[in-house]
Design a protein around this nucleic acid. Structure first.
Lengths: 207, 207
DNA sequence: CTAAGTTTGTGAACAAATTCACAAGTACCC
DNA sequence: GGGTACTTGTGAATTTGTTCACAAACTTAG
C-alpha cells in the first residue's frame, strides 16, 4: 500500500468522530461536503483521503453513515482492544489513568508504573502502582501494546528505552523532550510547552 | 512578513530547547549540523527555518549560542509573560494548574474556573476555583492572553464561545472536539484520543 | 598574505500535499 | 424513458514544504 500521510490519518480520525455523531442521530447518509464542513476542510480533501483505501460512496448520494464508520474503524485498527500502560504516576499520569474517554474507543489501561518507592503500592483509580523495575518481567507475560510516558523530562529517555527493551511497540510521549526510538517503534509526542509557544508566536506576530 | 509554516514554528521551539541545554553547558557556538542532529532534521532545514527571520550565523563558525537563543525567544514572543487561565477544574485541568513547566517559560496561570457549584470556592494549588459565570466580568479587568480548555467535550464549544466573547485572543483546547472560533483567534487543539488512534493505525498497518 | 578547511545563506530543483475540474454514476420527477 | 440535479472518484494543476548544491564569508595555520 502507498504510504499514508500523518495528516490524512488525523483527518480520518476526525471524520470517524463526526460519523459517530451522525450515527447517533440516526442519519443514513452523508456527503463529502457535509463531512468537510464539520471538519474544517474541503470535500475534495475528504474524498481524496478516503480514496487511498478504496471507494466507499455512492455517486449522487454520498456515504452510508454506519458503513463508512465501520470501514474507518477497521482502517484505524479500532476493531480490537489495545493494552495501554502508563509510565509515571504523577499529576498527568494519574489524570490520564482516570480519564474515561480512552476506554470507550478500545484503549484499555492495564497498569500504572512509577519509580518512586513512596508511590509504589498506592492506588490510583483501582490500579495499584507498580515498581518500574518490574516492567520487563511483567511485560513478558502481559504484553502491552502502547506505553504512555508521563515521567519528568530528565528520566523520559531511560524510561522509553526500558519500554522498548520490554518489547512494547508504540509510545505516546507527554514528556517535553525529543525521544530517540528505533525505526520500528511507533512514537507520538504531545508537547504542551511547544503548543503554548506556538500560541505565543501567533499572538506576537499577528497583523 | 511572509507567512511562516506551523512546522517551522514547532522546529524553532525545539531548537530553542536545545540551545538552552547548550547554554547551560557553557558552549559558545553551535553549527546548523549539530542543531539538526539533535532535533532529528537536516542542517539545510535549520538554516532555512532561521533564514525566514534574518541571518544570525557566522560563516565558517556557526551560531553564537546565547545570541541565537535570545533571537528565538524574541521571535517566539517569549520575552514577556503571558497570562493563562484554565477553564475546567477536572483531572486534566487540575494537573495542568499544578504543572511547573509552564511558569519557567513565562506562562503564568492566573485563574482556574469551573461551572460546577460544588467545585467553585475550593482550592487547587493555591488557586480558588472561580465560577465560570464570572469570566466575562473578571476578564474585563484581568485580561488573560490564553485560555486553556479542559472541560468535557459536550460543553467545550459553549465555553470557548464565552472565552472569545470575553476578549481572550488565544485558545489551547484539550477537549476531544473540533472547536469553531473566529479567524482572528489563535487556536491549538491537543487531542489525545486522536493521537492514540494514530498509534493504533501505525500498529495495524505496519509491514 | 596565502592556502586550506569550515559553515552560512539562498536560489533552484525536487517532493509532498492540497485543490481543481470534470467524466461517470445514481436518484428522482414527470 | 428522458431529463434534471447531485455527488463521487481521480488524474492534472497548483501550492506548499523540503532538500540540494554552491558561492560567499569567515577562521586558522604557516
Amino acid at each position: 500500500m502507498k504510504r499514508i500521510a500523518e495528516s490524512t490519518v488525523r483527518r480520518l480520525s476526525l471524520y470517524l468522530r463526526f460519523l459517530e455523531e451522525f450515527e447517533g442521530r440516526g442519519l443514513a447518509t452523508i456527503s463529502s461536503d457535509e463531512l468537510a464542513a464539520r471538519g474544517g476542510t474541503t470535500s475534495a480533501q475528504v474524498r481524496k483521503d478516503l480514496s487511498f483505501f478504496g471507494s466507499f460512496g455512492k455517486r449522487g448520494l454520498g456515504y452510508a453513515v454506519p458503513e463508512l464508520a465501520a470501514r474507518l474503524r477497521q482502517i484505524l485498527g479500532l476493531g480490537r482492544e489495545w493494552r495501554v500502560i502508563i509510565l509515571g504516576a504523577g499529576k498527568i499520569g494519574s489524570a490520564l489513568a482516570q480519564y474515561r474517554g480512552f476506554w470507550q474507543r478500545g484503549f484499555r489501561i492495564t497498569a500504572v508504573y512509577d519509580a518512586d518507592p513512596a508511590k509504589v503500592g498506592r492506588k490510583i483509580d483501582g490500579f495499584v502502582i507498580r515498581n518500574i523495575e518490574a516492567l520487563e518481567r511483567d511485560n513478558a507475560s502481559e504484553r502491552a501494546d502502547i506505553a504512555v510516558i508521563t515521567v519528568p523530562a530528565e528520566s523520559a529517555q531511560q524510561v522509553v528505552d526500558r519500554a522498548v527493551a520490554a518489547g512494547i511497540p508504540a509510545i505516546m510521549n507527554f514528556a517535553p523532550v525529543q525521544l530517540q526510538v528505533p525505526d520500528d517503534i511507533a512514537l507520538k509526542t504531545v508537547n504542551m510547552a511547544m503548543e503554548l509557544e506556538g500560541l505565543s508566536f501567533a499572538l506576537t506576530n499577528r497583523d
